[in-house]
Design a protein around this nucleic acid. Structure first.
Lengths: 228, 228
DNA sequence: ACCTGAACACCGTTCAAGT
DNA sequence: ACCTGAACACCGTTCAAGT
């Protein structure tokens, strides 16, 4: 169907080709549209041929996550720890934004791959080099959670019905039922036509929370904070 | 199969019974085991009978999330905003821990239900009553993200192979490859037999990050912080 | 009008039969 | 030894036929 399939059909299958085709398919059609059968069709191959290169679908997803994590820039050794961590996490975020399915795929993984372990190990090393105790580093990594990989769990994706008719009609009822929510939302996109959410600047919100955490980490570090 | 199915088989089907049975099934067997077909079997009913009470599986999941969110305690009006928010979020967390599938179900939702909107509206109201500007409240809610509902995206669930033989054998290689990670992990469960992760106190880590954020919010509020 | 069996268009993966 | 078609045991949901 896509010209990509044609261009690659004759090349011999390999794990790398399978993973890259899976990433491309997920980029185009979303993670829900990714099935072993559809991927094999895209590669011009019988479904069972994939199982020579990945043990099962879970391993395929692991490999796809590794491709994305591999796109994250290495740390800059010439800046202070906070700048370095901040830059690296924002690089991870850019990788995640190029592959919108990746955050959900990462969430679904149950065991970290070597590629992910190496990324986390390197990030832990950045805190240690910045003067964080082993103890504080541990809690700091937990506090970052998925933010260490460039994303956070926003509560909902598409916050509003796109039909302006329905939207205007709903506003009166919304204000009555959810006054605080509407007050906040109205302030956000007060010169846009939407009512809730679409005006939010995700990048700003991500950096707001990230910086709040990094500043908090710094304060604890300077105080010599310990959990015991 | 379960005695629950027998006990309820004769009662007429209703949306509430469908939702409660779905919650019970997910509690017992996990969210992956929840299918329309299996749920109907549990209720002693033909699969299509469910579609009288829920439009489709997405609406079933929405309803299940509503059941869980409905278990969260209302805010205590007699304490300061920080205590009130903290207590409420920890109440949400307890509800989430009673239903381990719920965080993943919430993540998968794309549009908030009225029940969830009301919860968020009420939480926004708590910040407003505590003296937060509309502007700051907005960013604060984003910074909380899924934490407002009592969970956060931990990076991985079951961090290690449970076989101590494999674990011990892997430790030497782990230390060579992921020195910082092993250093942190060794400190954590230094008197337990595990190597990575299982010694982590999830509740402590959740409160650590929550309090770091709440303290940061408080500092910004006192400073009269504004994004513009 | 209500209910429901069969059917449709999918899945991931096993396995035995073919080369 | 390698490859693969058919089959298995599932899905969510549509739809037409039954009451």
């Amino acid at each position: 169907m896509s010209h990509e399939a044609d261009a690659t059909r004759r090349a011999p299958l390999s794990r790398a080709r399978v993973l890259l085709a899976a990433v491309a398919l997920a980029d185009d059609a979303g993670i829900d549209a990714l099935s072993m059968r559809k991927l094999s069709r895209e590669l011009g191959v019988v479904p069972m041929a994939l199982y020579k290169h990945v043990a099962n679908k879970d391993e395929l997803l692991d490999g796809m996550v590794d491709v994305v994590v591999g796109e994250i820039d290495p740390p800059d050794p010439d800046v202070d720890w906070k700048t370095a961590v901040r830059q690296r996490i924002l690089s991870a975020r850019r990788a995640l934004l190029r592959h919108p399915w990746a955050s959900r795929a990462i969430e679904s993984r149950t065991t970290p791959t070597p590629v992910v372990l190496e990324y986390l190990d390197s990030m832990i090393g950045m805190f240690r080099a910045g003067g964080f105790s082993v103890d504080l580093t541990h809690h700091v990594m937990h506090a970052l959670g998925s933010r260490a990989l460039g994303f956070s769990q926003e509560l909902f994706d598409e916050p509003q019905s796109p039909d302006p008719q329905v939207r205007a009609a709903g506003l009166r009822e919304m204000s009555a039922r959810y006054p605080h929510l509407v007050e906040v939302a109205a302030r956000v996109d007060h010169d846009e036509e939407s009512v809730v959410g679409p005006g939010c600047d995700d990048q700003f919100e991500f950096e707001f929370a990230l910086d709040l955490l990094l500043d908090g980490f710094d304060r604890l570090r300077r105080r010599g904070w310990s959990s015991t």
